[in-house]
Lab assay of single mutants.
Amino acid sequence: MLEGKVKWFNSEKGFGFIEVEGQDDVFVHFSAIQGEGFKTLEEGQAVSAEIVEGNRGPQAANVTKEA
């Protein structure tokens, strides 16, 4: 698991990027966000996630919002 913060997230398109210190930004799709209801993230929000290899490079999986 790694910790980072949301760089930006487009709720209409359902994707965005997470900033991780010392690494390239990581793509995040709404389907990777854990929880019930409408899955979205806010800019600057702290999150933790796993990194997996997607079709277009590294992407976030099992994204959870930090308190």
Rank of each mutant, 00 (worst) to 15 (best):
M1A: 10
M1I: 13
M1L: 13
M1S: 10
M1N: 10
M1P: 11
L2I: 15
L2N: 07
L2E: 06
L2W: 11
L2H: 11
E3R: 15
E3P: 13
E3F: 15
E3D: 11
E3H: 15
G4F: 06
G4V: 04
G4W: 07
G4K: 00
G4P: 00
G4Q: 00
G4I: 06
G4C: 08
G4S: 02
G4R: 00
G4M: 06
G4N: 01
K5A: 06
K5D: 05
K5V: 13
K5E: 05
V6F: 03
V6P: 01
V6H: 04
V6N: 02
V6Y: 03
V6A: 00
V6E: 04
V6M: 00
V6G: 03
V6C: 07
V6D: 05
V6R: 00
K7P: 04
K7N: 05
K7Q: 05
K7W: 05
K7E: 06
K7C: 09
K7F: 05
K7M: 04
W8L: 00
W8G: 02
W8F: 07
F9I: 02
F9L: 00
F9Y: 08
F9M: 01
F9P: 03
F9K: 00
F9V: 03
F9D: 01
F9S: 01
F9C: 07
N10A: 07
N10L: 07
N10S: 11
N10C: 10
N10K: 07
N10T: 05
N10Q: 04
N10V: 05
S11A: 13
S11I: 10
S11H: 12
S11C: 14
S11W: 11
S11L: 09
S11R: 14
S11Q: 13
E12Y: 12
E12W: 12
E12K: 14
E12I: 13
E12C: 15
K13T: 07
K13N: 06
K13P: 02
K13S: 08
K13F: 08
K13Y: 09
K13I: 08
K13D: 04
K13V: 07
G14I: 01
G14C: 07
G14Y: 03
G14K: 01
G14F: 03
G14P: 00
G14A: 01
G14N: 01
F15M: 04
F15K: 00
F15Y: 14
F15G: 00
F15I: 08
F15N: 03
F15C: 06
G16K: 00
G16W: 04
G16Q: 00
G16C: 05
F17Q: 02
F17C: 09
F17W: 08
F17P: 00
F17G: 00
F17E: 01
F17V: 08
I18S: 00
I18W: 03
I18F: 02
I18D: 00
I18Q: 00
E19H: 10
E19V: 11
E19C: 14
E19T: 13
V20H: 04
V20L: 10
V20G: 03
V20R: 08
V20S: 07
V20I: 14
V20E: 03
E21D: 11
E21V: 12
E21P: 13
E21C: 14
E21Y: 12
E21S: 11
E21K: 12
G22N: 09
G22A: 05
G22K: 03
G22M: 06
G22T: 03
Q23H: 14
Q23N: 09
Q23E: 09
Q23M: 14
Q23S: 11
Q23W: 14
Q23L: 13
Q23T: 09
D24A: 14
D24L: 12
D24H: 12
D24E: 11
D24K: 14
D25L: 10
D25Q: 06
D25R: 06
D25T: 06
D25V: 08
D25C: 11
D25K: 05
D25M: 08
V26L: 14
V26N: 00
V26Y: 04
V26D: 01
V26W: 03
F27S: 02
F27M: 01
F27E: 01
F27W: 05
F27H: 02
F27I: 02
V28D: 02
V28Q: 01
V28S: 02
V28L: 06
V28M: 04
V28F: 11
V28K: 01
H29F: 10
H29M: 04
H29I: 05
H29P: 02
H29Q: 03
H29L: 04
H29R: 00
H29K: 03
F30V: 07
F30P: 02
F30C: 08
F30R: 04
F30E: 04
F30Y: 12
S31T: 12
S31D: 03
S31F: 04
S31I: 04
A32L: 02
A32H: 06
A32G: 08
A32W: 05
A32E: 07
A32Q: 09
A32F: 06
A32N: 08
A32M: 07
A32D: 10
I33D: 04
I33R: 00
I33A: 01
I33Q: 03
I33P: 01
I33S: 01
I33F: 04
I33E: 04
Q34H: 10
Q34R: 11
Q34F: 09
G35Q: 09
G35K: 05
G35A: 09
G35N: 07
G35D: 08
G35F: 08
G35Y: 06
E36F: 11
E36Q: 12
E36H: 12
E36P: 12
E36Y: 10
G37S: 06
G37C: 10
G37F: 06
G37K: 05
G37M: 05
G37A: 05
F38S: 05
F38G: 05
F38I: 07
F38E: 06
K39M: 07
K39Y: 04
K39L: 10
K39I: 06
K39E: 04
K39P: 05
K39S: 04
K39T: 05
T40W: 12
T40K: 07
T40H: 08
T40M: 08
L41W: 03
L41V: 04
L41K: 01
L41T: 02
L41A: 04
L41P: 02
L41N: 02
E42A: 11
E42M: 13
E42N: 11
E42T: 13
E42S: 13
E42Q: 14
E42Y: 15
E43W: 13
E43V: 15
E43P: 15
G44L: 04
G44N: 06
G44R: 04
G44Q: 03
G44F: 04
Q45D: 12
Q45S: 07
Q45Y: 05
Q45N: 07
Q45H: 06
A46M: 14
A46I: 14
A46K: 15
A46S: 12
A46G: 09
A46P: 11
V47R: 00
V47P: 01
V47Q: 02
V47A: 03
V47M: 03
S48M: 14
S48K: 15
S48G: 08
S48E: 07
S48W: 15
S48V: 12
S48P: 02
S48H: 14
A49M: 15
A49H: 09
A49F: 15
A49G: 12
A49P: 01
E50A: 11
E50S: 13
E50H: 13
E50N: 12
E50I: 15
I51V: 11
I51Y: 09
I51T: 04
I51R: 08
V52A: 08
V52Y: 10
V52D: 04
V52C: 11
V52W: 09
V52R: 09
E53T: 13
E53Q: 15
E53K: 13
E53A: 13
E53R: 13
E53H: 13
G54Q: 06
G54S: 10
G54T: 14
G54V: 05
G54R: 06
G54H: 07
N55S: 14
N55P: 15
N55R: 15
N55W: 14
N55F: 15
N55E: 13
R56V: 07
R56F: 12
R56L: 09
R56W: 15
R56Q: 09
R56M: 09
G57K: 05
G57V: 03
G57P: 04
G57T: 03
G57Y: 05
G57R: 08
G57E: 02
P58G: 04
P58C: 09
P58H: 09
Q59D: 03
Q59W: 13
Q59Y: 15
Q59L: 07
Q59I: 10
Q59P: 03
A60I: 03
A60M: 04
A60S: 03
A60D: 03
A60F: 02
A60H: 02
A60N: 03
A60L: 04
A61G: 09
A61I: 14
A61D: 06
A61W: 09
A61H: 11
A61E: 08
A61T: 10
N62G: 07
N62Q: 09
N62W: 11
N62S: 10
N62H: 10
N62F: 12
V63D: 01
V63E: 03
V63H: 01
V63T: 02
V63A: 01
V63R: 00
V63G: 01
T64W: 14
T64L: 12
T64S: 10
T64I: 15
T64F: 13
T64K: 14
T64R: 15
K65Q: 09
K65P: 11
K65L: 12
K65C: 09
K65I: 14
K65R: 10
K65F: 12
K65Y: 10
K65T: 11
K65S: 09
E66W: 13
E66A: 14
E66D: 12
A67H: 13
A67P: 13
A67K: 12
A67D: 12
A67M: 12
A67W: 12
A67I: 12
A67S: 12
